[in-house]
């Protein structure tokens, strides 16, 4: 137990990075995912094909393979940034595919009369989507988005294998320095992850109550 309490600062540093990775990738995935979903429901076939291909390919690829392609592939074409930024990119690319699926199912759950009514008052496709359908779609998909972002929080741990000093890396360093306390160290890290996940779940359920249609 002492190993954990004495090195609390290492843990705090690690989990700060875990949180910032999660928040940046969540923001990126939300934007990219919504764009992909909009492309998938658009009347323009090439955009639909592109978005469908992206979602199908990325959803069926392990996140670790996405990481390998980003971390070792991008430098081959001259893109060299820090491992931290590579991790944000990989997590964004991967999570966006799942966000796109959630947003699309949200769009499909909005009553068809809503889109029909907006068309009948002369709105274009993008106005219909932007002003009428998407706001209602998002209100409907808070629970699936919550589980996607909680999974993202857990997935940031993979960045450990690519030299990012996040929580799992912090845990690994403590284990290397204090071999005898290994169980306490892993338990502490697990509980901290769990706490963050529960906190996120609580925040999202408050959000859900706030946006739930009356």
């Amino acid at each position: 137990m002492d190993a954990v309490l004495d090195n609390l600062d290492v843990f705090v540093e690690g989990f700060t990075t875990t949180l910032s990775l999660t928040l940046l990738a969540a923001a990126g995935a939300l934007i990219l995912g919504t764009l992909l979903a909009a492309m998938r429901v658009s009347p323009v076939p090439p955009l639909r094909w592109f978005a469908t291909l992206y979602v199908q390919a990325v959803r069926n690829t392990p996140l670790t393979v996405v990481f390998f392609l980003v971390v070792f592939g991008l430098p081959e074409v001259g893109v060299i940034v820090s491992f931290y930024r590579f991790a944000v990119v990989a997590l964004t690319i991967y999570t966006a595919a799942f966000v796109a699926e959630a947003v699309r199912s949200g769009i499909n759950s909005v009553a068809s009369g809503q889109a029909e009514a907006s068309r009948s008052i002369g709105m274009t496709f993008s106005q219909t989507l932007r002003l009428v359908v998407l706001p209602q779609a998002f209100a409907n998909i808070v629970p699936p988005l919550a589980s996607i972002f909680i999974a993202l929080l857990k997935n940031t741990s993979i960045a450990y294998a690519f030299g990012v000093f996040e929580a799992t890396q912090a845990m690994n360093r403590l284990i290397n320095d204090n071999g005898s306390d290994v169980i306490a160290i892993i338990a502490a890290a697990a509980l901290a992850y769990l706490l963050l996940a529960l906190l996120a779940a609580a925040l999202f359920s408050r959000l859900e109550r706030a946006v739930r249609p009356a």
Partner: peptide
């Protein structure tokens, strides 16, 4: 369900030999 899978794998890989 709430803990990263990698942590569980590392538990078996690191903690078992050491502990």
């Amino acid at each position: 369900r709430g803990v990263p899978l990698l942590l569980l794998i590392l538990f078996f890989f690191l903690a078992f030999p050491l502990a």
